[in-house]
Design a protein around this nucleic acid. Structure first.
Lengths: 153, 153
DNA sequence: TATAGAATTGACGTAAACGTAAAAGGCGCA
DNA sequence: TGCGCCTTTTACGTTTACGTCAATTCTATA
């Protein structure tokens, strides 16, 4: 049983059970669609962040998996580790209010926000420090090219 | 008690402090003075960034080593890799104008500055994105606590 | 002299997020 | 039927800057 969904392969020659509208994607399509590598998708699965169905050994990603991947990528973008992302995702319960999940997410987010702000401060520091050094170096270069010889450090 | 200083000449075969003001420091003092660990100092040496003298097997750091360490730490602070720092330092020639060294430093600095600015932009992005998510989550939490039951996604 | 405090050289461990083969199975198509 | 493409699993490699023992030696001091 092979399931090819997607784009345009109108063929669909022989079989395909295809639960109406269930747009399943294989790993290659997923990778292309979300700009990640195959390795990355397998890695996420290995870490328990994704859990695609299987058709034999072939991974089939549902729209649920896509939603999860989007969340993962958002998490990465804002600097969460995969562990953090997993912790938050693991709390998701489709039958509940997910209050705990949301609280955890908020808690982690506050801490991450603080980290980001600290990082920004560090970077600003570095930028200033570097700019200063560059001015000094430029000045030294000018001296080297206008004055003839030595001048110690 | 053996303190051998003096860069080169004098044989200094036996002992005796020599060179009055040469304030040599051992690794422990260096570490304390500059807020790094022993491991770090040995690591820098291993990478060719420092080259303290030896009294037997004991490392002795001169003020030249101290100057170099300061530069290393400055480099690290502005985000240079140790490799970069080494490249720049390796061009230092106490007898020349060091124009090449300065040019390399300036060149690397410009690139590093660009990287830092890009990083800051990314962080700002992340901060915004995260702040937005947090608002959404807070809103969801409010709904969870005021409304009774379900609401998907 | 006994003991604590430095110092030495290995050398493996860590963290994150994949990269990069390697070897093999399956499928459609010309 | 052979080719090419997609996919699979396994597993070591990469990067950076050290951390963390371990075993040993040297030195200073009480």
């Amino acid at each position: 049983m092979k399931l090819i969904s997607a784009g345009e392969t109108a063929a669909n020659t022989n079989n395909i059970p295809v639960e109406a509208g269930e747009d399943l994607a294989r790993i290659g399509e997923m990778a292309k669609k979300y700009g990640v590598t195959l390795r990355t998708l397998r890695f996420y699965e290995d870490k328990g962040l994704l859990n695609p169905q299987r058709d034999g050994s072939t991974r089939l990603y549902t729209r649920r998996d896509k939603a999860r991947l989007k969340l993962i990528l958002l998490g990465r973008k804002v600097g969460f580790s995969l562990r953090d992302v997993k912790q938050m995702m693991d709390l998701y319960d489709p039958t509940g209010s997910n209050t705990k999940q949301l609280r955890l997410a908020l808690d982690k987010s506050e801490k991450q926000l603080a980290r980001l702000q600290k990082q920004r401060a560090l970077i600003d520091d570095a930028i200033n420090e570097l700019s200063g050094s560059m001015s000094a170096v430029r000045q030294m270069l000018i001296e080297r090219t206008t004055a003839p010889a030595s001048a110690a450090s």
